[in-house]
Design a protein around this nucleic acid. Structure first.
Lengths: 221, 221
DNA sequence: ATGTTCTTTTAGACATAGCTAAATCCGATT
DNA sequence: AATCGGATTTAGCTATGTCTAAAAGAACAT
């Protein structure tokens, strides 16, 4: 009985994904935040948020930013599911490196039919996480998210397995790979330098210091 | 030293592919033929042929139609390579049926990076033909095309292996599949009815009569 | 050779999504 | 409470690719 969802344009889908991500990090989704994330000018972002509001995908308050509606969130999760399933596929079946999958999935995600998505999902055995460790929404768009801790939550001297690294920045991912900090690998938290200083971790690749900010972007159990 | 190719839009690529196909069947590429192939109005086709001419991809003579330039043909072959490689991949690695691969490849072909194309090509072992039997241009965009004969060239009583069927029409492909007429299968040419009448062939699926026009669209050796 | 018909092109419009320049609003500082 | 500065929106423009209606050209038939 619900309104039939018209096909969302590629741009609309990209904005929804960006808004979803910004909301996830508990930031207010302002015009400037969105514009910067999308790499467009502020007026362009304003125009698009108006479109999204007309489509019923966001609540918009002028000068205050936007928030996804339930429908908007559902659409965003569909895009995210496409993206992360493709990342998993590209890594597992075509051997793409961790730093390459994001960009390729970005290109392909809007061209993936529901039928092909289902085939890929089945072929992979219904994976729950992408290669960076981000959860893949299931067919009902449910996300498995336990409360996560990051490297800065590990006790000094403690051991942890890396579960998630930031996606989207190939250079950062190559750097982390060189440090042995990839999902699935083990790390020992050697020490926290005082005064908010760097964090030292030991992995198969030896002992390395990284900034506290970066450590907090790496999830571990 | 050549002019750096700017990224062609999706629409431009689709038109190039359509023009290439029309040229291949030795038809004059008129505005109306192109419009009908692309499913757009005649004025839209006129506008696009002008754009293509400005981009140096076709020679255009007003009221006479268009012909691909060398550069246009190269671009068309690149699109065709994407399309046919993807069809091969979808059939071989994801188990899509012969009548499904065309539409999916159509969606994905514009989102395929050169890097991923190379990976897929290697993964498949550098295939030379797509699942319909159409040749896949190689990395140098060379096409392997020996002079082809079709079912109507086979002697009555003769045996032939199907090498190519028409792509793009799922219904037709399901019909042919039901008749056992798929690339790789064997067929015996039973008889030609007189007065341009139907052609009877025997396959694993029994004996069936098809029109002469259809028989001529099925290649065999 | 001329007129009629069919094809093609021109003219003018719309939708999407981007831009810059200018105006306006909000909130923080005084 | 007034003002100033930064964020946001409005105004107006561009490019792509589509459309319909109308004009113009090409080609065929008489």
């Amino acid at each position: 009985m619900g309104t039939q969802a018209p096909d969302l344009t590629v741009a609309v889908q990209d904005y929804l994904k960006a808004i979803y991500t910004l909301e996830s990090s508990r930031e207010r989704v302002t015009t400037s935040a969105l514009a910067s994330r999308m790499g467009v000018s502020a007026p362009s972002a304003t125009a698009m948020t108006k479109r999204l509001a007309e489509l019923g995908l966001v609540e918009r308050a002028p000068y205050r930013g936007v928030a996804l509606t339930d429908e908007g969130r559902r659409s965003a999760l569909e895009v995210l599911r496409h993206h992360r399933l493709l990342e998993r596929y590209l890594a597992d079946r075509l051997g793409l490196a961790l730093d390459e999958v994001h960009a390729e999935a970005e290109l392909l995600e809007h061209a993936l039919s529901e039928e092909l998505e289902a085939k890929i999902d089945a072929e992979l055995g219904y994976p729950t996480h992408d290669p960076h460790g981000d959860p893949i929404p299931d067919r009902e768009l449910q996300l498995s998210h336990g409360s996560e801790q990051t490297l800065i939550d590990v006790e000094p001297g403690g051991r942890a397995m890396i579960t998630r690294v930031p996606d989207g920045d190939p250079e950062l991912l190559r750097y982390l790979d060189g440090l042995g900090l990839v999902p699935g690998s083990d790390a020992v938290l050697v020490s926290f330098a005082p005064f908010g200083g760097p964090v030292t971790v030991r992995t198969d690749a030896g002992e390395h210091a990284i900034s506290r900010e970066l450590a907090d972007r790496i999830a571990a159990t």
